[in-house]
Write a protein that binds this DNA or RNA. Structure first.
Lengths: 249, 249
DNA sequence: CATTTAGCTGCATAAAGGTGCATAAAAACG
DNA sequence: CGTTTTTATGCACCTTTATGCAGCTAAATG
């Protein structure tokens, strides 16, 4: 096995499982642990993974499970929220996921907007409730304490009955090949249902999460209509997505 | 399991339950308590959690558990909440309204209780979510911003499909002749539906509200099975209700 | 204030990491 | 084609890290 090939394999494993152990990899690939360690070191130097004692972790692991709440990403999210808010017109029916970006969106809505927002996320709904003129609909079902959203057959079937104008999703990972992915099975179920029930799918994410992968698949790139990040639309990082036919704001 | 991974897990648990015990974590992850203690120490040094004797707390713990907001007659409501919590057995399906008394109830639930709680009140559900073992079901529909509950045909019909063991209502007025009454039409609709969908109706109220009247009728005295106030059951103020066949606690 | 439980310190150990070197394969070169 | 250079890998040796354990100290709780 070639060195590059091996490193590509390792990177794939890291992105897939969010972690790898040096010991296991060396058994699997049948090279010494020294070699694996050198590979991990090189990948880490290139910024592709995060090396830790005993193995390595993916970037998304760090962000998702081990949040280092930096102030910058908050600002980025405000920029994203403002761009997204501009898409919403009076009278629209908007389906949204949860997440910090969506909460920023709720705060960024213009004061006189008259639209209907539907969500299964308790924190998002709490924020929507602060708005004076919008209507808010909570999707009912069992509550997942970890993700603070309602989830279950009831919620999914309720979403399926809807035909929303807009679906705004805060996403945790997007990649040209795999589309959007996430790490919470329940959240994914809800997002999948939402995508099927809206005319226009808008994905919101900070640029760090572009070209990253999470274990569970939500939808392919071609289902996404609009992608919003904090970057200007002509940023080279976004070019592949524009080429793939997505409107980038 | 990698150290970072373990710490991420611990952090997740802390954020989920607002607290963790070193002893439980060490059993769960199968490492010594020393290791857990060192992990907690490191997480605390990074400012991610608050270390205390025996375990750790999340930053939100203080806010969540000691809100000094407009909950008047807090002590009385705690007494009521404790009496009500004693009625709930493992495996029960409990339908509840919202209100400050119900929020106290959510806080008074025994830690190891395994029951299912259903409510349309966002503040109540938020509080139920803090509990480690109960299941929480949110009733979905349009949200009334004034009362912070979901209300509408959808919510009512959902409640009607339920057959709950217990219905716990925080009430704003009760009177021998008129039964329970309230001042918010939307809240009343929800409570009426709940009363029809439960085996046993329990009303919770502070004694000031006994023998008072509100404009909108919820239900007559004879539909009420149990009345809970902060007073001892033999208080003369409660005698007429006992005579009317209500169990008073 | 005594008893139980958690926490701390120092130490031992095993696993992982790092360094330098030997070797072999691949690549470059004359 | 033979020689030299480069690159990749493994090994031996030592260092660092992670973890558990023993014995003592501090904190909580009734």
């Amino acid at each position: 096995m070639l060195k590059k090939e091996r490193q590509a394999y390792i990177l794939h494993q890291v992105n897939l499982h969010n972690k790898v152990l040096s010991s296991l990899l060396s058994q699997e690939i049948r090279v010494s642990e020294d070699t694996i360690r050198r590979d991990l070191q090189e990948l880490a130097d290139e910024g592709k993974i995060i090396k830790v004692h005993g193995g390595a972790l993916s970037h998304s692991f760090n962000e998702v499970y081990y949040p280092t709440d930096n102030v910058y990403s908050q600002d980025h999210k405000k920029i994203i929220a403002n761009k997204a808010a501009a898409l919403i017109q009076n009278g629209m029916f908007v389906l949204t996921s949860g997440g910090t970006t969506i909460i920023e969106l709720a705060r960024a809505l213009p004061r006189q907007l008259k639209a209907t927002f539907m969500s299964g996320s308790i924190p998002a709904v709490l924020e929507y409730m602060q708005h004076p003129t919008i209507d808010v609909i909570m999707i009912g079902d069992r509550i997942s304490k970890s993700s603070k959203i309602t989830i279950g057959a009831e919620a999914i079937s309720k979403i399926k009955q809807i035909n929303a104008d807009l679906c705004l999703l805060g996403i945790n990972a997007i990649d040209l090949k795999h589309g959007t992915t996430d790490n919470d099975w329940e959240v994914v179920q809800l997002k999948k249902a939402m995508i099927q029930s809206a005319q226009k799918i808008v994905c919101l994410t900070i640029s760090e999460k572009i070209n990253t992968l999470q274990p569970i698949h939500i939808c392919d790139i071609q289902h996404i209509d609009v992608l919003i990040t904090e970057l200007p639309p002509d940023d080279p990082k976004l070019k592949p997505y524009i080429d793939a036919g997505i409107q980038v704001l």
